[in-house]
Design a binder for these strands. Sequence first.
DNA 1: ATGGTCGCCCGGCGA
Length: 276
Amino acid sequence: MKIASFNINGIKARMDALTDWLTEAEPDVVVLQEIKSVDENFPREHFEDMGYIVETHGQKSFNGVAILSKLPLEDITRGLPDAAGMGREGADDIEARYIEATVMGARNSVRVCGLYLPNGNPVDLNPDGTPIEGSKYDFKLKWFARLEERARALMALEQPFLMAGDFNLIPQAEDAKRPDAWREDALFRPQSRAAFRSLMALGFTDALRATTSAPEVYTFWDYQAGAFDRNDGIRIDHFLLSPQAADCLTDCQIDVFTRAKTKPSDHVPIWVTLDI
DNA sequence: ATGGTCGCCCGGCGA
């Protein structure tokens, strides 16, 4: 089973790029981020004609996630639990960033969590270094904590599951061409990395690092200043596998070639194959 | 790398 994640940066602008990549890569399942579309305007028929089931969780102009699957899906849920836990009532109803579904494989099923973690910039801190209540950075860390709680609940089931998507998080210095440029950024600063490490400590396997030791491997390059041409990138799109899913892992790759095509997203797809 | 570029959808925000 081939499962992919792709931050497409707008479905309307990425129809050709996404269609071409689906035809070439032939994933069974794809979680999409930044569809930037309401559900009613998502071109679902186009992807249904390509053999995919389409489940969206969109909003107007920003964010928005979706799942495309050639395999049957069960128990689709939208949004993380505990929206009130954000400190802003119903915050998760405003920002569409999370979708879950169970993918039915030939022999076993896998729970797939597709996510678009908040960017978190600008970083606004109190004099004591804590995030200012209600700031973008505060929102990121609170969302991270809720994601960890959801992961903890899924881990307790001891079943194959994975969390995939745009985590807006650079795990370590080797995951950026120029780590020093990101030290104070919400994608890399210590509190952000601590939240990621805490999540990983539940028992996840980083699929990319489990299958390759290649240096300078990235999933995002800024549109500006020829960043891709200089491979001035960061690794922020991740596949985190539960122990039961990691036991089935056979490959993980980043489709860097899509970034060199016409009208690319600023992210590229990442995928795993699971013997499941 | 609080933007030199994009995408949203129509002036400015978000990344």
